[in-house]
C-alpha cells in the first residue's frame, strides 16, 4: 500500500504512543515574515530536512504534531537571529539526536549507507564487464562466405547447425508471409 494512510497514520500513531498534544491541525500553515527571500528558502529547506520527532515519518513542514510547529518556530527564530545551518542542525541534534536528521551524518556507522550505492555500482560494472568479456569469447552465429549461417553453440553439446543460403531464403519467405521480424533484420532490434 502506498501513500494512502498518511492522515490515519499520523493520528493513529500518536494514539498508540499515548502521547498527547493540545493542538491538532490539518494543513500546516505558518505565517512568518522574513527579511530576505534567501531566509525564507532556508526556512523551507530546513523544515523539510528535519524529521518531526513526535509523529511518524513526516518532516517538520508537513507534520501536524504540536512539537513540529514549535520546532519550526525555533528554526525561524534562529534564522532571523542569523544562525548558520550548521548551528541550527547542532541545536536539533543536541536535543533530539540523530533521529531528526533526514540526511544522516557521515559516521563510521553510516559509511555503508552513504558509500553502499557506489559499491553496488562498482560491483555491477565489474559483473557487467565480466559478462561482456565472457560473451565475447562465446561464438556468435557467423555468416559464412557462401551466405549460409552457422550457429555454433559452445554451452551445450549440440551439433552445429548449418542453414544453406537457399534454405535461408525459404525461411525468410515463410517469415515474410507471417509478417514476422527476422532475427537479423528485426524491427525493434535495429
Amino acid at each position: 500500500m502506498k501513500l494512502f494512510e498518511r492522515m490515519l497514520g499520523l493520528s493513529l500513531v500518536c494514539v498508540l504512543l499515548y502521547l498527547a498534544f493540545p493542538v491538532n491541525s490539518h494543513a500546516q500553515v505558518d505565517v512568518y515574515d522574513f527579511e530576505t527571500v534567501e531566509q525564507e528558502q532556508r526556512f523551507r529547506q530546513l523544515s523539510n530536512e528535519f524529521r518531526c520527532p513526535m509523529c511518524q515519518n513526516a518532516n517538520l513542514s508537513s507534520s501536524p504534531g504540536g512539537v513540529a510547529a514549535d520546532l519550526r518556530r525555533e528554526i525561524y527564530r534562529m534564522i532571523i537571529e542569523g544562525q548558520t545551518d550548521t548551528q541550527i542542525e547542532e541545536f536539533m541534534l543536541s536535543r533530539y539526536g540523530d533521529f531528526v536528521l533526514y540526511r544522516p551524518r557521515l559516521t563510521t556507522q553510516t559509511i555503508l549507507l552513504w558509500f553502499g550505492p557506489i559499491l553496488f555500482l562498482l560491483a555491477g560494472i565489474w559483473i557487467g564487464w565480466n559478462v561482456i568479456r565472457n560473451s565475447a569469447s562465446r561464438k556468435s552465429p557467423t555468416r559464412n562466405g557462401d551466405g549460409s549461417v552457422t550457429v555454433a553453440n559452445n554451452s551445450h553439446a549440440v551439433a552445429d547447425v548449418v542453414i544453406s543460403a537457399e534454405e535461408r531464403k525459404r525461411l525468410n519467405r515463410l517469415l515474410a508471409e507471417n509478417d514476422l521480424p527476422t532475427n537479423a533484420n528485426d524491427m525493434t532490434g535495429r
Binding site: L17, L19, A20, C52, V67, D70, E74, R95
Partner: peptide, 15 residues
C-alpha cells in the same frame, strides 16, 4: 506554556 523548555529537554509530547 510555549513549549520552548520542552524543546531543550527533547520532549515531543506529554507524558
Amino acid at each position: 506554556d510555549s513549549g520552548r523548555y520542552g524543546i531543550d529537554l527533547g520532549v515531543y509530547g506529554a507524558p
